[in-house]
Write a protein that binds this DNA or RNA. Structure first.
Lengths: 122, 122
DNA sequence: TTGATATTCAACCCAGAGGTTGAATGATGC
DNA sequence: GCATCATTCAACCTCTGGGTTGAATATCAA
């Protein structure tokens, strides 16, 4: 079934990561499960605002919520980040392949402009 | 002077990447310089829309523009992607360190709950 | 000059982010 | 049952993103 890495997924993951508050949340969460209120405490914004950020992270599947009574325990889910990493790696490969091709081309030009020295030039 | 990797930079880079059109543009550009019109051609949107996307990519320093007469030649600049990769790598390290700590803890608990067997329990 | 081409600028539209406040829901503890 | 605590839902505001169209700018070609 292969759920990972459709463009839509990438969009949501990257969008979720493109905010310092949310990155801070992930950082905190990567140290272990935290309750919503506890998580919100250090931020200079309302609990509601943090709650919304959490929803964005959930939508991107970067955060998982486990209900325990009235408390909601949040944890980090790294898989979407792996997908991003894979995309970036593919991009990097593309890029360096192009540089290699360019390099080859330049070397070819050199060979043409300055043929195997045998006197002759000049 | 160290320009790289302030949160603001990361925000702009990740935001720029969080759009399929812009990712496609980067893909195309990683194969070499392209003119704006040429670049816009395959997309089902106005030239102006593509022009705006390009501006977003420039703001994130993912694309460099070289003017040659009336033509603007665009090229891919990979450095901001490296910064993203570095952040993700740090995050990943954090995460696995936590898993390791958790693992150690569980092992410790095991040792406590089931001490070096010597009969005794039951 | 004049006309065509490459590109941006400007104004506008609509949807969605990111924040607020206030009310609703749902578990807990007496 | 009742007050309290943890959390979300709902409505609202403002700003920005992504798109449009139409006009402006700059270069090329004649």
């Amino acid at each position: 079934m292969r759920t990972s890495a459709t463009p839509k997924h990438l969009d949501q993951t990257l969008l979720a990561l493109a905010d310092p508050t949310r990155r801070a949340i992930l950082q905190r969460l990567s140290a272990g499960e935290v309750r919503v209120t506890e998580l919100a405490q250090p931020f200079a914004m309302s609990l509601n605002a943090v709650s919304k950020h959490i929803r964005v992270l959930e939508r991107a599947h970067l955060v998982h919520r486990r209900r325990e009574g009235r408390e909601h325990l949040l944890s980090f889910t790294p898989k979407p980040m792996d997908d991003v990493a894979r995309w970036m790696e593919a991009q990097r490969a593309n890029w360096s392949a192009r540089l290699q091709a360019l390099d080859d081309l330049l070397q070819e030009e050199d060979r043409v402009l300055a043929p195997p020295r045998k006197g002759r030039t000049r």
